[in-house]
Design a protein around this nucleic acid. Structure first.
Lengths: 332, 332
DNA sequence: AATATCTGTGAAAGAGTTTACAATACTTCT
DNA sequence: AGAAGTATTGTAAACTCTTTCACAGATATT
């Protein structure tokens, strides 16, 4: 129960000054082999671990990164945060960093000063927090392109590729009229998915009606509402509907079934995310799979490189995969 | 962009020593009203916030608490961690603390020294981590009773009450033979739910067959397997099945439906947790609802009280509620 | 003898907390 | 009135542990 060993203890044992110990322990090589060996041995013997508080004070670094979460959380059905955290934490720990959760409403100077940098998620198209962190000079990495804020350091999934695969697949099946169940457009991931969808649709010359509507809510309820509007509004009904997320796709399917239509016979449905439940529901939801865990790992890695002044490739765009499941088929 | 204000800056402006500033800022009352006012004013004017690194060094406290997560995560369908984190973080921030995620495989001395205390979840009946933290004198609060380890500081849901309500409800409907779909018994929450179930069953004189089996896996698959074994093993089939978790209940229902039985007409099914999906599936799952978010809030509160040497009530047992849904009815 | 090369040191810096003590003012008592 | 005691208000200096960098002394090279 004696107090923890410090570099002074090591210095005393070895017969050098703390400065020498510090230098050796930090990999400074300009000391005699003998000294180095004895210092390392003493450190091990005393079971020395550096006092991170002292180090933080002198280096003005906490070796803590934050996962910044705006007030509004994702749908609870979605294990997005669990996976993201796991990825972030794994890489962080490998580099001696720790991950803290920072909710927007708990962010103040006292908290901010204890964080070396942030990973931003749930970024909006025009995001006040992003601008704030830019102005405040807080190092961060974003999990969205943040076009409006001209970001460079971001990690995202290859949405375009995924949607291209999905839409081409549908087109090959014979679909021409494809609707879109929109989530909350303020969020960049929703906006990006949608605008890419429109872009691809246009380029492929697919009929494009006003069949893209939504309540702006990423939930089953939101999906149901969107589907209802789509099926009511369009003069020619779409034969397939893409949804912003799997959660919404679930709602879309529910609505369609509730009005006596069958999926995929009457309407094909495609989601995005490959949420865990997607393969289990009836019918299983075809979707664009991306890897949140890897997103987390790369984000942590990029942020730490940035913090430590190392070079890193940016941006990072991770591969996705279109997963064919029972919710799609040829149109009738 | 000038450097952050320190107590020295305040001291200079006010014309006192840093010691005085420190004392006043920490609520030490033995100074003249005038001095206090001027120090507070200067602090505000300079936009002073304490340097947590310096404070951490001198007080040997990081004002960080950890959520300790053993390697094996809960089923991903279960937003347990998101809710828990939210509760923990809210309270922590109110007290100037920050929450970090600590995965078991990333725990080492360097990390541990940066954490004032831990909240333990996914505790096992006989938990090596618990014993370790006890021996190492790490302050912690557990989200399970930890009977084997004789814990006192824990926050749990009133499992007994919830199961009593559930079983009495079933009994009133006329059920006598009730099976149990078991999850991984090594986990205390699984063990506790099961042993309380057995106890209540015995006390109520309900027929108790060898209809409690499981694969030891908390998943849909685990639920399916458990249901299959239950329906195959029992000489007299149960008319109702309780499951360790809603996730498993889902699997139980799937299996029953897959062999042509209908829920609840042929067999009633009851879950535990009130997971978000439970109300949406067909049939909606009757379940014992408990409040993970509140568990988190109380756990954080208890841990911080403990860290700061304040009194606190222990243990804390939070109320639960049996939610009646479509998955139960009178037996045929 | 002058210059390089090795090894290691000293001292400051980083920002706050803590405690014993000092200086002054005010009571109280005889 | 003078001595003694007590509040009141503030200070000085030590302490927490590590990092950093200009410098020093010793040895080796040319």
């Amino acid at each position: 129960m004696s107090r923890k060993a410090t570099i002074k203890d090591i210095a005393k044992i070895v017969g050098v000054t703390p400065a020498t110990v510090s230098n050796v322990l930090n990999g400074n090589n300009r000391f005699s082999e003998d000294t180095k060996k004895r210092i390392l041995a003493a450190a091990k013997q005393l079971n020395y671990t550096p006092n991170m508080f002292a180090r933080a004070l002198v280096k003005n670094r906490s070796y803590t990164i934050g996962l910044f979460i705006p007030a509004s959380p994702r749908a609870f059905l979605d294990p997005y945060f669990s996976e993201l955290l796991r990825g972030l934490t794994e890489i962080a720990l490998e580099h001696g960093y720790v991950v803290s959760i920072i909710y927007a409403d708990g962010l103040n100077e006292t908290v901010r000063n204890r964080i070396d940098g942030l990973v931003l998620t749930e970024v909006k198209v025009k995001d006040e927090y992003v601008s704030f962190f830019q102005r405040a000079n807080v190092p961060f990495v974003s999990l969205a392109r943040g076009a409006e804020n001209e970001l460079e350091d971001y990690v995202v999934s290859d949405t375009r590729r995924g949607l291209e695969e999905a839409i081409k697949y549908l087109a090959r099946l014979g679909h021409r009229r494809i609707g879109y169940a929109l989530g909350p457009l303020a969020y960049e991931y929703v906006y990006e998915r949608y605008s890419i969808f429109r872009d691809i649709q246009r380029k492929m010359g697919l009929i494009c009606e006003a069949t893209d509507v939504g309540t702006g809510e990423n939930s089953r309820q939101g999906g149901r509402m969107a589907a209802r509007r789509i099926m009511r509004a369009a003069s020619e009904k779409p034969t397939a509907i893409l949804a912003s997320t799997d959660v919404m796709a679930l709602g879309v399917i529910e609505y369609l079934q509730s009005i006596g239509m069958s999926v995929p016979e009457d309407v094909s449905v495609v989601g995005f995310d490959d949420a865990p439940f997607s393969r289990y529901v009836t019918p299983p939801i075809a979707t664009v799979r991306h890897d949140i865990y890897q997103l987390g790992r790369h984000a942590a890695s990029m942020l730490i490189s940035k913090l430590e002044g190392r070079d890193y490739t940016k941006p990072i765009i991770l591969p996705v995969k279109f997963i064919v499941r029972g919710s799609i088929s040829s149109p009738r």
